[in-house]
Computed example of a mutant assay.
Amino acid sequence: MLALATTTLTVLRGTTTDAYGDEQDTDTPVHTGIPASLTEQSRRVTTRDDPTPRIVRYAVARVTAGTDITDQDRVRDERTGAVYIVEAVSSMANPAVAADLRLDLRRTT
């Protein structure tokens, strides 16, 4: 891992159906103890339709290349207990070294 790890993550995956037939996420851990660099940031945004500034919070994590994490997985920060949904997984192309995976996250709890 190229980034400095600040926490460890647990990857949560899987769904079940409740009594009403609705799909629900399960907290089944697939992988635990994954070193990650996790940062939460905020940004002030406006739109043409609504010029009132809003503060949008988002999180980004970096994990070792080849880690089994996909879009729509959930990850739990083992240090704080916060749970995030993985919105996107990306990596930069580098012919010399395997670059870290970048996870765009949205906090759910």
Score class of each variant (00 low, 15 high):
residue 3 A to W: 02
residue 5 A to E: 08
residue 5 A to I: 07
residue 6 T to G: 10
residue 7 T to I: 06
residue 8 T to V: 12
residue 10 T to S: 13
residue 10 T to W: 04
residue 10 T to I: 05
residue 11 V to F: 05
residue 11 V to H: 03
residue 13 R to T: 02
residue 14 G to S: 05
residue 14 G to Y: 04
residue 14 G to T: 04
residue 14 G to F: 09
residue 15 T to P: 03
residue 15 T to E: 14
residue 15 T to Q: 15
residue 17 T to H: 00
residue 17 T to L: 02
residue 17 T to M: 02
residue 19 A to T: 13
residue 19 A to N: 07
residue 19 A to Q: 13
residue 19 A to S: 15
residue 20 Y to N: 15
residue 20 Y to F: 13
residue 21 G to N: 03
residue 23 E to R: 15
residue 24 Q to R: 14
residue 25 D to C: 00
residue 25 D to T: 10
residue 25 D to A: 14
residue 26 T to P: 05
residue 27 D to F: 05
residue 27 D to I: 07
residue 27 D to S: 09
residue 27 D to E: 15
residue 28 T to W: 01
residue 28 T to D: 11
residue 28 T to L: 10
residue 31 H to T: 13
residue 31 H to C: 04
residue 31 H to R: 09
residue 34 I to K: 08
residue 34 I to T: 02
residue 35 P to N: 12
residue 35 P to G: 06
residue 36 A to E: 00
residue 36 A to F: 01
residue 36 A to G: 09
residue 37 S to C: 12
residue 37 S to A: 13
residue 39 T to C: 00
residue 39 T to F: 01
residue 40 E to V: 04
residue 41 Q to T: 13
residue 41 Q to K: 14
residue 42 S to L: 01
residue 44 R to P: 00
residue 44 R to M: 11
residue 47 T to I: 06
residue 49 D to R: 11
residue 49 D to L: 11
residue 50 D to W: 00
residue 50 D to P: 03
residue 54 R to A: 08
residue 54 R to Q: 13
residue 56 V to S: 08
residue 57 R to G: 05
residue 59 A to L: 09
residue 61 A to L: 05
residue 63 V to M: 05
residue 63 V to P: 06
residue 63 V to D: 09
residue 65 A to K: 03
residue 65 A to W: 04
residue 66 G to A: 07
residue 66 G to V: 09
residue 69 I to T: 12
residue 69 I to H: 02
residue 70 T to D: 09
residue 71 D to Y: 07
residue 72 Q to G: 01
residue 73 D to G: 05
residue 73 D to P: 06
residue 74 R to Y: 12
residue 74 R to H: 05
residue 75 V to R: 08
residue 78 E to Q: 11
residue 78 E to R: 00
residue 79 R to Q: 13
residue 79 R to F: 03
residue 80 T to I: 09
residue 80 T to A: 10
residue 81 G to T: 06
residue 81 G to V: 04
residue 82 A to S: 06
residue 82 A to N: 12
residue 84 Y to I: 09
residue 85 I to M: 09
residue 87 E to V: 07
residue 88 A to Q: 14
residue 89 V to H: 01
residue 89 V to I: 11
residue 89 V to T: 13
residue 90 S to P: 09
residue 90 S to C: 07
residue 90 S to A: 14
residue 90 S to L: 01
residue 91 S to Q: 15
residue 92 M to G: 13
residue 93 A to D: 12
residue 97 V to A: 10
residue 97 V to F: 06
residue 98 A to E: 12
residue 99 A to H: 10
residue 99 A to G: 01
residue 99 A to L: 00
residue 99 A to S: 15
residue 100 D to N: 08
residue 101 L to H: 04
residue 101 L to Q: 15
residue 101 L to I: 04
residue 103 L to D: 08
residue 103 L to F: 04
residue 104 D to K: 07
residue 105 L to Q: 05
residue 105 L to D: 11
residue 106 R to Y: 02
residue 106 R to N: 07
residue 106 R to E: 14
residue 106 R to A: 14
residue 107 R to H: 03
residue 107 R to I: 11
residue 108 T to G: 00
residue 109 T to V: 13
residue 109 T to K: 05
